[in-house]
Design a protein around this nucleic acid. Structure first.
Length: 426
RNA sequence: CGGAGUGUAGCUCAGCCAGGUAGAGCACCGCCUUCGGGAGGCGGGGGCCGGAGGUCCGAAUCCUCUCACUCCGACCA
């Protein structure tokens, strides 16, 4: 992508409303723009990241056999009358009427809708288990939206739903999705901490939040330091290690040695629930069981805050100059800068390298603008692509260009072939 | 929903207390000079001072109402 043809409105100064790093950087790097309180539009660079994150989530969901669907954002209120949540969900739910006076709502979550789809088509225990998921927009009319997309009213969410024959099977499904979530977040360069949590209004027993440690997080959690020391603990030990939300923490019964107990703030990026037959019963979604008697399947639901993840990743990975994208979610892998685009030799060499890199399947953002190099270089640092290639007349005369690692700042001088070989490596 | 703030140029803000021609820096447009880390000169465009009402000869400034946004708290799959 040529920057001269890309819609990337970077800001030199941070807008006054942004108080945390990720919000500031998302505005400055041209990822999002605010439309109303808690409602944001996504610009090309931000949308690109959103797509990368979504892709990883989808791959990991499909790897465990979940089926991707796409439900509607608008639902009839009748479904919620069936489940009994019509009255209990409250002001957070955005309701409105169509021209015929039919009461509708904008989905804050989709348990009712997915249960409705399930009951229409699944009639036998032989068809279980089922896992369905989508990545779609939600609206929750929060009393107090804040921190940009961290707590927005409109947000993109991966929401998954499982149906199992019995508790034993439901536990296996829960574990499968739990593990997939860990893999998903780690692939994005994050360190997720699964935390035993309250299951909230949704009810049920098994419930975990996935937290990313960050000072700007809204949650408070207590955990065993072993969780963050992979070298000191086996996977099994870590899985069993203590980590609970503030509400669940009891200093008198906590088994963690005081020297290993940590308190921290976190960003909740995922939440998994098991809630049994709450909805299948309420909505009469029974199937025929092996004994010839009707059975209400056991359900769970599983959420990942996709838009919130963008904020969480930036909170976890930035410096004073800007964002430092982990490779897996970077909008482009390389930023190619023509330091003197108005000089023919420099422009030609840059464009040539851009073509070669692109042909090699490497995602490149090519700054071919005739801007001052200082502006270009600070823009590149701000948007935080993992690698930067600087093409300037001086080095070019010596037959090399510079390859810079955004995170470490390390610079190596390579021939153009050298750059291709280096970045072409898997 | 309680509390505290802020709305003036695209952005960051001054001006308001003490009423009297609408301001600065950056950004933008033109020309020139520059060019290895947010350049310099000259010229230029851009404002219903959030909105409505009021006081006054006169309101960005004072008063009332209202809308929007932000922060703290409560709330929150």
């Amino acid at each position: 992508m040529r920057l001269s043809a890309y819609f990337l409105p970077t800001l030199k100064e941070a807008p006054a409303e942004a108080t945390i790093a990720s919000h500031r950087l998302m505005l400055r790097a041209g990822l999002i723009v605010q439309t109303a309180s808690g409602i944001y539009s996504w610009l090309p660079l931000g949308l690109n990241v959103l797509s990368k994150i979504t892709r990883i989530i989808e791959e990991e969901q499909e790897a465990i056999g979940a089926n991707k669907i796409l439900m509607t954002t608008i639902q009839p209120v009748e479904l919620w009358r069936e489940s009994g949540r019509d009255n209990s969900y409250g002001e957070e739910m955005l309701r409105f009427k169509d021209r015929r006076g039919h009461e509708l709502l904008y989905s804050p979550t989709n348990e009712e809708q997915v249960t409705d789809i399930f009951r229409r088509f699944v009639k036998s225990y032989r068809q279980l288990p089922q896992m369905l998921f989508q990545v779609h927009w939600k609206f929750r009319d929060e009393m107090r939206p804040r921190f940009g997309i961290m707590r927005g009213r409109e947000f993109l969410m991966k929401d998954g739903y499982s149906f199992d024959l019995d508790l034993e099977s439901a536990k296996k499904t829960y574990k499968k999705i739990f593990d997939a979530y860990l893999t998903t977040f780690r692939r994005m360069g994050l360190v997720p901490i699964p935390v035993r949590a309250d299951s909230g209004a949704i009810g049920g027993d098994m419930s975990h939040e996935f937290q990313i440690l960050a000072e700007t997080g809204e949650s408070v959690l207590f955990y065993d330091a072993l969780l963050l020391e992979p070298s000191l603990a086996s996977a099994a030990e870590r899985a069993a290690a203590y980590a609970v939300s503030q509400e669940k923490h009891n200093p008198y019964t906590c088994s963690v040695p005081p020297n290993r107990l940590r308190q921290s703030r976190g960003i909740e990026v995922g939440h998994v629930f098991y809630f049994g037959t709450k909805y299948t019963r309420a909505m009469n979604a029974s199937i025929m069981g092996p004994e010839g008697t009707p059975i209400y399947p056991e359900m769970g639901s599983y959420g990942i805050g996709v838009t919130r993840l963008v904020g969480a990743i930036i909170e976890a990975s930035h410096d004073e100059k800007g964002i430092v994208w982990p490779e897996a979610v970077a909008p482009f892998r390389v930023g190619l800068v023509s330091l003197h685009a108005e000089e023919a030799a420099c422009a030609e060499a840059s464009t040539d390298l851009y073509t070669k890199l692109s042909n090699a399947g490497i995602e490149v953002l090519y700054d071919d603008r005739e801007e001052r190099m200082g502006v270009k270089l600070s823009d590149m640092d701000l948007i935080g692509l993992p690698w930067q290639v600087l093409v300037g007349p001086k080095k070019l005369a010596a037959g090399v260009v510079e390859l810079k690692n955004r995170k470490t700042g390390e610079v190596q001088e390579l021939s153009q072939e050298g750059v291709l070989n280096f970045l072409g490596r898997p």
